[in-house]
């Protein structure tokens, strides 16, 4: 059992660590600027790592489906996109709460170029679900969904990697700021880097776990309906 499920235990332990030690561990105080809100790094940043990983995996399954049309590939593509979208929403919320106090921006939607990328990816994947919903025939749905998924992904990723770097923003990784949108490796304390990566590991594995369960549910339902 351990040999098969070690990664689920790892996910649990990583998140347990983040949610307890992550709140207690001593973090650097930058002249009182970030204060304790720097701990958001353990939650907000892993969401975007997770989202990107899930969207990439979703596209890989879409390509796999077009190469050999198996329903399990389609379920995987759909569910990874779903979990990615949930992570996107969570990333937006954690970012918005943080920015309310750090940027002093009281509006719900913060005006920053980084958020455009997040909004676009959210809209694209919601459109993917609407597209799937509008097609009745299962084979057609899987095929057209896969085509749109690949096309949208190819249009989305250059824009969220290139465009935000070309404009100035308060968010890390804009023009004139050091590092990349995720983190600045030269300007982070070791403890933050460590917990950030632990968070990425834990949250990503949890997402994979959720996907795994949902795909299995799909397959069981399919089996039941096929058997009458």
């Amino acid at each position: 059992m351990i040999a098969k499920n070690w990664w689920k235990i790892l996910a649990y332990l990583a998140l347990l660590c983040i949610c307890t030690v992550g709140f207690l561990v001593k973090v650097p105080v930058l002249q009182g600027r970030l204060q304790e809100s720097v701990r958001n790094t353990f939650f907000h940043v892993p969401m975007w790592f997770g989202m990107m990983i899930f969207y990439v995996v979703s596209v890989v399954y879409s390509i796999k489906y077009l190469r050999s049309p198996k329903t399990s590939h389609d379920y995987n593509a759909l569910e990874f996109a779903r979990v990615g979208t949930v992570y996107c929403i969570l990333g937006l919320i954690t970012g918005a709460v943080w920015a309310t106090y750090q940027w002093g921006d009281a509006s719900i939607w913060k005006s920053d170029p980084k958020l455009i990328g997040a909004a676009i990816s959210l809209l694209i994947y919601l459109a993917y679900f609407v597209l799937r919903g509008s097609i009745v025939d299962a084979d057609n749905r899987a095929k057209i969904g896969a085509v749109y998924n690949i096309f949208a992904f190819a249009m989305l990723f250059p824009t969220i990697w290139i465009l935000p770097r070309m404009s100035e923003s308060l968010h890390p990784g804009g023009q004139g700021a050091n590092g990349n949108p995720g983190l600045n490796p030269n300007d982070s304390a070791a403890v933050i880097t460590l917990f950030l990566w632990l968070g990425v590991l834990g949250w990503t594995l949890t997402g994979v776990w959720i996907t795994n369960l949902r795909v299995r549910l799909h397959l069981i339902i399919e089996k039941r309906t096929n058997n009458g």
Partner: peptide, 13 residues
């Protein structure tokens, strides 16, 4: 309707 839903987010960049 789908054209707009699918197209607008893709065309924003």
């Amino acid at each position: 309707a789908l054209m707009a839903i699918m197209g607008f987010p893709i065309i924003i960049p």
